[in-house]
Computed example of a mutant assay.
Amino acid sequence: MVELAFSTNAYTEYALPEAVRRIADRGYEGVELLGDDPHAYFPAFDHERERALSEALDETGISVSNINANTAMGYYDDAPPSAFFEPSIITADDGDRTWRIAYTKRAIDLAAAVGAPAVCLATGRPLPGNPPERAREYLLDSLHEILDYAEPREVEVGIEFEPELLVECTTDVLELIDEIGRDSLGVNLDIGHAAVYGEDVAEAIYRSAGRITGIHLEDIEGGRRGKHYHRIPGEGDLDFRTVFDSLDDIGYEGFATLELYTYSDDPDHAATRAYEVLAQY
């Protein structure tokens, strides 16, 4: 049975322990932790902050669905527009790439500490001066090092594809998983990203069966090839009955996490309304 979780990336106006409490108060079984500023930006996420987080998790009894390590915006004082996923695990700068690998290992440490089954990771874009074929070599090397660290800690790594990234669709991520050839690598399947790319969402789910480390949910206006703007379920055009039926068909029993960072001005409303809509499934 699929359980519902909600990402703290909608609660960036709140400290992480308070975000956890608010999500639990809205009925969710799970919470995804944002592995970035202002929540768990790992260079600043010390033992005191981890202890406060653990106290909130113990108090509420909520489970951690995933550590979202897709971005590391805390790295920059003034990030350029192209740097949303930078430094990435495919960046051409050896020092920046090493920093990002180490950052991901810290996310894995947090996952192990709070009992999260997985971390998710985006590949980033091949920026000028870093052609895709070279970026892929960096990707493979980086992932093997990350997986070497994750496997003894019993944490899976889910690649989250997104249009315009090096890995941007279901076909890309499944080919990557096959090429890496390690059971600890899977896909954090973002349903909205599949739709925006133009994929049939049910087909993306069926193709990913047995390789899903987690699910991200949001509605998309325009459905397939719609606008990439995360909306509360019911405010776009995605068919969530089909989504949940497909997940049931493949026997998926993990978390489906609402990722509604676009509602940071009123996350309580977004979390409450999303739960009301999706609990019926």
Rank of each mutant, 00 (worst) to 15 (best):
V187Y: 02
L165E: 06
E151C: 04
P131V: 00
L143A: 02
Y149I: 00
E203D: 15
V157N: 02
L147W: 07
D183G: 14
E151A: 13
Y197S: 09
D172K: 02
E168C: 15
F161H: 08
R136A: 07
D183H: 13
R153I: 05
E154N: 15
V201E: 09
H144A: 11
L189T: 01
G186T: 07
E154Y: 14
L127W: 10
R136F: 12
E154I: 13
L174A: 06
A195H: 10
G158V: 01
Y206W: 12
P126V: 01
Y149S: 04
D178R: 14
Y149M: 04
A202Y: 07
E137D: 15
E164F: 13
V155E: 01
L174K: 03
E199N: 13
L189D: 01
D178T: 12
E199F: 11
A204T: 12
R182G: 05
L185R: 03
G129M: 04
E162M: 14
R207T: 08
T171H: 14
E175H: 14
E162Q: 14
Y138S: 14
R136D: 01
D178K: 12
L127Y: 10
V167A: 06
E160M: 07
E145V: 12
V201A: 09
N130E: 09
I159V: 14
E137C: 04
H144W: 09
R182S: 05
A204V: 10
L139E: 08
V157S: 01
P128D: 14
E168G: 15
G192L: 00
V157R: 00
G181K: 08
Y206N: 11
E179A: 12
E145M: 07
T170V: 14
V187C: 04
D183Q: 13
S184F: 00
L127D: 13
P128A: 13
R134M: 10
L166Y: 05
R182E: 03
R207Y: 08
I159S: 05
D183R: 13
R207I: 01
C169P: 00
G192A: 04
V157I: 08
Y138R: 11
C169R: 14
S184Y: 08
D141T: 07
P132M: 03
E151H: 06
R153E: 05
E162W: 00
R207S: 11
V196M: 07
D183M: 10
E199R: 09
I146V: 13
E199Y: 12
S184N: 15
V157A: 01
I191F: 00
V196L: 08
E179Q: 06
P163C: 02
